[in-house]
């Protein structure tokens, strides 16, 4: 399967990944050869075969709703790259006037 630099850039954007020029170029051939390898699945007879999404057939696992102590804001913010007054601080989500 042929893959273009454009395809790689599109997937990287969907995956929220910045790629350097040389990085993106290297992925073109690597991903193409991996996608080629996947082509062999086409020969597998799956017409009437249901998908497996989970190895175990466990369903509806229930437990009692018991209140327990939470970790509290100080601990929750321990690894925050940026925090302010008990909140995670992030860049502006909406442009001016968008709210």
């Amino acid at each position: 399967m042929s893959l273009t630099l454009e395809d790689v850039r599109r997937v990287a954007h969907l995956a929220r990944l910045n790629l350097a020029e040389d990085e993106a170029a290297a992925y073109v051939d690597q991903l193409a050869s991996i996608l080629d390898y996947f082509e062999r699945l086409g020969a597998a007879p799956t017409a009437d075969v249901p998908p497996t999404v989970h190895a175990l057939a466990l369903q509806d696992v229930l437990r009692d709703d018991v209140p327990a102590a939470g970790c509290g804001p100080d601990l929750a913010l321990r690894n925050a790259p940026s925090a302010d007054q008990g909140y995670f601080k992030v860049p502006k989500v909406l442009a001016d006037g968008e709210a």
């Binding site: 996947f38 699945l41 086409g42 597998a44 007879p45 799956t46 075969v49 249901p50 998908p51 497996t52 999404v53 190895a55």
Partner: peptide
């Protein structure tokens, strides 16, 4: 497709 092939392998 892969999820169905997974059923065959199981």
């Amino acid at each position: 497709k892969a999820s169905r092939v997974r059923t065959l392998i199981r």
